[in-house]
Each structure stands twice: as C-alpha cells, then as structure tokens.
Design a protein around this nucleic acid. Sequence first.
DNA 1: TCAGACTCTGACCGATCGGTCAGTTCATCG
DNA 2: CGATGAACTGACCGATCGGTCAGAGTCTGA
Lengths: 195, 195
Amino acid sequence: MARAVSETHGEILAAAARRFAVTGYRGTSLQDIAREVGCSKATVLYHFANKEALLAELMAPAIAVLRDLDDRLTGLTGAAAQQVAAVGFVDLAVRFRREIALLRGEFPELLAQPAFAHIQQISERLRDAFAGHSERPGARISALVLLAGIPEACAEFVDVPDDELRPALLTLVRRAVEPVESSLPQPPTTEDKES
Amino acid sequence: MARAVSETHGEILAAAARRFAVTGYRGTSLQDIAREVGCSKATVLYHFANKEALLAELMAPAIAVLRDLDDRLTGLTGAAAQQVAAVGFVDLAVRFRREIALLRGEFPELLAQPAFAHIQQISERLRDAFAGHSERPGARISALVLLAGIPEACAEFVDVPDDELRPALLTLVRRAVEPVESSLPQPPTTEDKES
DNA sequence: TCAGACTCTGACCGATCGGTCAGTTCATCG
DNA sequence: CGATGAACTGACCGATCGGTCAGAGTCTGA
C-alpha cells in the first residue's frame, strides 16, 4: 500500500489546505487531515515533523513574496514607499488569497508561532509604508484599516478573477490612502513598482 | 467565604474580559479565568451556564446596538443606506472597541455559535448598505474591506480617544466608499442618523 | 432552633488534542 | 536469497478541555 513519498506528501498537503479552509487551523485536527487523505494520523506525522510544519510548508510561497516586498521597501520613504507598499500588498493579497482564506481570522495567534516570528515585524514596516511613514493618527488608522481589510476581502472573494479584484482594490487604496506631505523633496521613483 | 452573588458574577465577567483580550476566546480556558478571579472553575460554571454564556453576556451591549443599527437600516437604499450604515458602524466600532479587541480574529468561528446565529445575517445586510446596495464588484469589495478593517483598527487603537478615532474613520469611509448612482431619486433623509 | 436556599468547592468525567513508538509491510539491491 | 531502509500503522501517552456532581459552609427567615 506504500505510495511514492512525494505522492502522499502532496496529498496530505492538499487535504490540509482543504480542511484548514473550512474549519481553520486550530479547528482542524491531524486526525481530520488523515481521514481526508485516507491514511493514519501517524502517517501525517511521518511526513511532517508536526502540525506547525504542515502549515509552514503551506504558507511558504506567500511568505517568500512577503519578504521580497519587505526588502523592496527598505530605504523608501513617503509617497514612494506608499506606492510600492500599495501595489505590492494588493498583488500579494490577490495572488495568495486562497492561502489567506485558510487562516481566516487566526493570524494573531498564528503569528505567535516560532515559524512566523518575523512576520510581525514585516507587517509593522508595511503598515508604516502604507501610512507614508507619517505620524498623523489619521494616516496610521487608514493604513491599518486597509491592511486588515484587504486580506479579508480577498479571502471572501476567492472566486472573483484576479484582473477584476486587483484593480478594484488598487482604486480603493488610491482613494483611501492619506496623501503624504512630501517632507523630503523626493522624486516619485516609480520605476521599480512593477518589478 | 461566600461573597454577594453580584460581586463574584461581576468579577468573573471582568476577569474573562481581561483574559479574552490577551489570549482570545478559544485560547482562554475556564481554569484561566477561575485562577484570575481566585475561585474554582466550578464556581465560574455556577455563575454562568457555560463558556459561551460568559461570552454572550460580555458582548450583549454591543450586540444590542448592532441590532438597533440593523433596524434603522431596514427600508433604506442607496446613498441614504450608505450614510446611516457608515455613521452607525463607525460609531459602533469605536464605542465597543474593547469588546471587539476581545475577539481579535475569532469572529468567523464565534459567529457559528448558536448565541450569535443572527449576527451573520445582520452583517450581510450591513455590507449591502455599505455598498449602497450596488451589485458592482468594486462597490462590494470596498464595502468588505472597510467592514473588516474598521473593527480591526478600532481594536488596535484602543488607547486613541473616541473623538480622534471617530472622525478619522468617517473621513476614511467617505473617501473610500464608492459613490452610489442614485437609481431612485431619493431625498437624503439624514434626520435619524444621530438618534 | 432548624429547614431551606444560596454560594462555593474538590474530585471526577468523557472527549479530544498533538505527538511517540515499536513493529509490520514491501520494494530494492548486493 | 537475505539484508536494508523507506513507508506506514495501531496502540498508546500525557495534557488539557468544558462540564457534572455530591456535598460542605454560610446566611436568612419562619
């Protein structure tokens, strides 16, 4: 009955994604996943060190893109940071909205897990960029509303095609974001916004 | 050692609020709450039928206001509905942001509990109103971003005073919301928006 | 004084959780 | 053929969960 290793590994991963999307991470037991695959719980733990490793592998691509966005943000300030953050984050949320849907509302406690320790800091820098590094409360509040609301909307509209969801979100962001006062006379370097 | 009933009852409620705010609803056990009060777990369950009843009593005031908003929304369409929904929802989120913070990201599964069965429907009607009852995807997407993001922002900025948070959010909503085409020539009846 | 109601508790329950482990099956290869 | 190692499993573990229950302590009013 032993299948090729990669086969079962992938099946477990797919089953986990399906179950997490329905009942959430905490609400899904290893037994549930095993039942869906048609193997024993011990088999799941043979292929993955623990439950957290299963989630980490599922989220790895999305996290890689998030880190890349964080890198592209370093050094940018004001309107330039706003622009890169907005385009990058909307793109990220749209592309990985299925992964986001898996975690529906479990981000806070999930981020506390060792595997996602750095995500917290990245999201704080992203929020700063969204606010154009402004200290004005209005700017920071708008930034957080968008950063929290966009993933939620992406997870909800899983079936809306990318090229409909993305422009709608970008239009919303442009309208909603507080225009930042150019404290530094910074030329709008929009050259790398589509890299 | 027996205290007055209302005293212990209130202490348990306060302790639960404190613990829920830190570790979330699911992440807080009845034992945790009992430890914080300085009584036994059985005492907690003497004063409250079960864990869900504890949460329900904690959220009761917020839910009452939400139902009231829902009532005021019935019959309204287009821009009028948008206006009432925006002002009402922002006010609700600001006033009860401590209660919202308790549940940080646990809304989806919490709403599945019997005690909150009707909330799901109310929030759907609220989303419709935010979108001005428009079917345009852009309008519906913006509505969901705001409806999901505003509570999150309110929970995050617990320490920002009301009269700073509220106008910032209202400004954001006015900028972000898609202006609805007045399909019905409806006079802007804003008379009851501040009742 | 005493019955009954109220408040509170320790001990216990069944269920479920993530995770471990010894051992079985089986394909591959020297 | 026999040895090896990867794939897989059932049985089991300790911990924790929400919840139950019989009974102890205390107060009150007839």
